[in-house]
Design a binder for these strands. Sequence first.
DNA 1: ATAAAAGAGTACATAAGGAGTACATTATGA
DNA 2: TCATAATGTACTCCTTATGTACTCTTTTAT
Lengths: 199, 199
Amino acid sequence: MKLALTRLEQRILDSIKSYHLQYNEMPTIRGIGKIVDISSPGTIGRYVNSLVSKGYLQRDKRTWRGLKLISFDNGEYLPLMGRIAAGKPIEAISGENELNPNALLLGENRYALQVIGDSMIDAGIRDRDWVIIHSQESADDGQIVVALIDHTETTLKYLHHLKNDIVELRPANTALSPMRYISDRILIQGVLVAQMRTY
Amino acid sequence: MKLALTRLEQRILDSIKSYHLQYNEMPTIRGIGKIVDISSPGTIGRYVNSLVSKGYLQRDKRTWRGLKLISFDNGEYLPLMGRIAAGKPIEAISGENELNPNALLLGENRYALQVIGDSMIDAGIRDRDWVIIHSQESADDGQIVVALIDHTETTLKYLHHLKNDIVELRPANTALSPMRYISDRILIQGVLVAQMRTY
DNA sequence: ATAAAAGAGTACATAAGGAGTACATTATGA
DNA sequence: TCATAATGTACTCCTTATGTACTCTTTTAT
């Protein structure tokens, strides 16, 4: 159970995280103060104390830079470290400490499918990926849909409506060609809403 | 069983939710008042109370911004329909009929990062994707790793060891070139173990 | 016409945010 | 090694933001 943080506590925790991500060492009390623009070390110290007592930090009392970010918990959440961009330090995401995949991926009328094949590889969907589909019977052009063709075969493709009741299903793979069908041969079964992969 | 809400209660609940989505923290009583254009904190307090007693909110009584949204749990699992391959019917996966993303993605010493940029796009990792990293200090050739360069910048790349203590970090993007470093400039922070994306 | 819902306004105790100083301890560099 | 600067910590004092409990009035719906 995570205890709630006040605004300043959150700000201080964020500052500590990004400092640590960037310099790979913990900041000093006054260093934190500089980041959050608070001149009094006593004030920072007080809030660091409450972060410690709330379980967000540990402290090695005898030395400078003796703070420690709490080690990973492997409960319901993933610790969320921040954003990674090539050529930059990892940037903390303010206020966000953890990520719950289920909260992100689950939802009403959703189901999972495993993708076989590389027909959508240019959309970043690869063989053996899991896709999460929201069950619905229509979709907009450009969306990735699960389509049932002639009540027999199923496929995951980009959807586009052409003139004269023609539906085009476009793969995301330059080696494959789009397919066109009279619209009543195609049944939309759902729309891609999320995706995951394990390595 | 959800109790019915009056219009104002509904409006207040909506405001709280959107405030929380936007700022990632709960609003104050007066803050809610500003959103719904009601000047009296007492009035807001009264309706927040009734939201609490109707079970739409929880409250941490002793503190500011101490409201909590009741988490409406979507259930633990996604129905698992099977495998989808272009040109075939969906094939059931024998013995499996549900998928729990958390079970797939969580684990000890794992954390999440959000990827910014397209440097790994040919590996199916796109801008804004979430990646899940297993924290470890070494990795094998060909694995995708989080690497800290010169203690300042961080990046997600394929790892390869060359001769003479040279480490090569390869992007998965034909527009970008591999970078080589003396091995002591590079610190491996973790290895990619999973990934997810929402649309 | 009546009750429920919506709203104003005020007062008050207290949580949160912040400054500043003093002092013992720890790094750091010459 | 030793002097000095940097640091963590414990205080005190202060201001502002906030939740809450009231009372009273106005609007809305049945």
